[in-house]
Computed example of a mutant assay.
Amino acid sequence: MARNARERLLDTAERLFYAEGIRAVGIDRILAESGVGKASLYRHFPTKDDLVLAVLRRRDGEWRQWLRDAVDERGAPPARRPLAVFDALAERFAWADFRGCAFINTIVEAADPGSPAHAVADEHKRRLTGYLADLLTDAGHSDPQAMAPRMTLLVDGAIVTALRERSPAAAKVAKGIAEVLLAS
Rank of each mutant, 00 (worst) to 15 (best):
R74F: 06
K38G: 05
R164L: 14
L136N: 00
R150T: 05
P168H: 11
H44S: 14
F98E: 11
D122M: 14
D156V: 00
E7G: 03
R127Q: 15
Y131K: 00
F93P: 10
E7P: 01
V108P: 00
V180F: 09
K38R: 15
A133H: 02
E20C: 06
E73M: 08
R58M: 00
I22R: 12
R164K: 08
H118N: 15
L56P: 01
D156C: 06
A19Y: 04
R3F: 00
V52W: 11
L182H: 15
L56A: 04
V71Y: 04
R150P: 00
S167Y: 11
G114I: 12
A171W: 02
R150C: 06
W95V: 14
A84C: 06
S40C: 07
V160A: 11
A139N: 13
T161E: 10
A2P: 06
R74E: 11
V173M: 09
W66M: 12
V36S: 00
I22Q: 05
G26M: 13
E20F: 09
A76Y: 04
R29Y: 05
F93Y: 15
E123S: 15
Y18F: 14
R150E: 05
E33T: 03
A133C: 04
L135N: 01
E123C: 13
P77T: 07
D72M: 06
Y18E: 01
A88D: 07
R80D: 15
R164W: 05
V36F: 10
T137Y: 05
V25S: 07
R166I: 06
D134C: 00
Y18M: 03
I104E: 09
D138E: 15
M151A: 09
D134G: 13
D49R: 14
E14M: 04
E109I: 11
E109P: 11
G21M: 10
G130Q: 07
K125E: 15
R99K: 13
G130R: 08
A54W: 05
V155N: 01
V180C: 12
T47H: 11
W66D: 12
A119N: 10
E62F: 06
L89C: 10
A162G: 10
L67F: 12
S142G: 10
E91P: 05
G75I: 08
G130A: 13
V108E: 14
E91N: 08
L181V: 14
V173N: 04
A19E: 14
T161S: 10
A178L: 12
H141Y: 09
K175T: 05
I107N: 06
A76L: 12
T137I: 03
D49Q: 15
F93E: 03
R59T: 01
Y131T: 01
P78L: 09
E33G: 05
A170K: 06
T137C: 05
R3G: 08
F45R: 00
M147W: 00
P78D: 02
R3W: 03
T161F: 00
S167K: 08
A170L: 11
A96D: 15
R99C: 10
A102K: 01
M147Y: 02
I177G: 04
